[in-house]
Design a protein around this nucleic acid. Structure first.
Lengths: 228, 228
DNA sequence: GTCTATACAACGATAGAC
DNA sequence: GTCTATCGTTGTATAGAC
């Protein structure tokens, strides 16, 4: 790795973290340079504008999605449905480790720059697309194995997982606790359970008193309600 | 209304809109003053700091939740479950009218200032609390009338509705279309339908081929799958 | 490639006339 | 209460020595 790439990468890494922590508008170039351990003026050797730095961070996030986000979270998790909830558990852990300082880097920037920066918006969509593809593959696998009914639209359900994640992260950061986050995950889990139940086939006598109870334990260790 | 209050209110209104459109950090005091049709220096007669303006906008949002958001959306919608989805339809309409320029004003600010501004974060939580209470009342009413099973946790389900809404708005603004938004709402509707089915009691012979199909039409007019 | 120095605009905030 | 003028700082971006 040449020294030039090294400095460029330090700048991108610094910007990535600062944008996530403080947002795009609130982060100055001087601050980026300081964190990257180079001079403010030097940043412009690599990037013509601040927006170009933003674009570079989003390109890097796309590249890092699998090796640094999904792969670590999915190591040792083979069941496709549990992989979906492993993602939610992973984001929960990230929130806990940073004491709610980090939200979703993509979601944060959508809100801040999607309206004003067309190129950034495209890159943000591509990042979401990567997430959606990954979740959709899990859902599709669960459908193919018969765990989820064939009537499920894998793409729509993947979107639902992502919106739940983004919304849950937002509420967690607002309240600075996990009650809302865990509640959302519990509800999503209940939905998945009901989909699984409808795939395996079950009957309930009309007039029976109670439906399957909604779980209250937010993060029970991965378990399958019904083996297949 | 005294002229002083009038100017103060114009400032708050201007700030409210600009913060929603551009974010807090990206909005300058000069811009607020211009939109409020007063001079930049005059703003400081009413507000000691920019943060105080932010606080005032969040106080006003709390006050306006019922008269200007919920009441108009819920006019003519009596069914508690349909009220939940009327909220989602209302936000969809807002996105359409502003061509995705407005997101959720609360969610936007959570991401931008929750970490750095303690007082603002408290006010943002109070805004979310107002939304959650309103949705929870709908869910509770649906439980009491027997539409939803008693096993449902009204507060958790209300949170799930809110996270879906926030996540769906975020994805809609990123993609600048309603595909993801409609998909998330369709999934949430399917979940509600399944909850309703489990409350009214239904049986499905083991080994039957297909579960209840997931709806693909994103915004069908309000309908109940089963009357009670 | 990296540095110092700096241009120029916009920022939040203040002072004081009216 | 509202105005003009301005303070000091910080913002992005540039120029040019090394």
């Amino acid at each position: 790795m040449s020294p030039a790439q090294d400095t460029r990468e330090r700048i991108v890494d610094a910007a990535m973290e600062l944008f996530t922590l403080q947002g795009y508008a609130a982060t100055g170039l001087a601050q980026i340079a300081k964190k990257a351990e180079c001079n403010a003026g030097s940043v412009y050797y690599f990037f013509p504008t601040k927006e170009a730095i933003l674009a570079a961070t989003l390109e890097k996030r796309k590249e890092l999605l699998h090796p640094e986000v999904l792969d670590p979270i999915w190591t040792g998790v083979d069941d496709p449905i549990e992989r979906v909830f492993a993602l939610l558990a992973g984001y929960r852990q990230m929130l806990a480790m940073t004491e709610f300082a980090h939200g979703c880097p993509i979601g944060n920037l959508v809100i801040e720059v999607a309206e004003t920066n067309k190129h950034a918006r495209k890159l943000l969509c591509e990042n979401f697309d990567g997430w959606l593809r990954a979740v959709e593959l899990c859902v599709s696998a669960a459908i193919e194995s018969g765990r989820l009914p064939e009537s499920v639209d894998a793409h729509q359900l993947a979107i639902f997982v992502l919106t739940t994640m983004e919304g849950a992260v937002m509420l967690a950061r607002s309240y600075r606790d996990f009650r809302a986050y865990d509640a959302a995950v519990t509800m999503l889990r209940d939905y998945f359970d009901r989909l699984v139940d409808s795939a395996t086939g079950w009957s309930k006598p009309a007039g029976a008193t109670a439906a399957a109870p909604v779980r209250s334990a937010p993060r029970s260790p991965p378990r399958r309600r019904r083996k297949r």
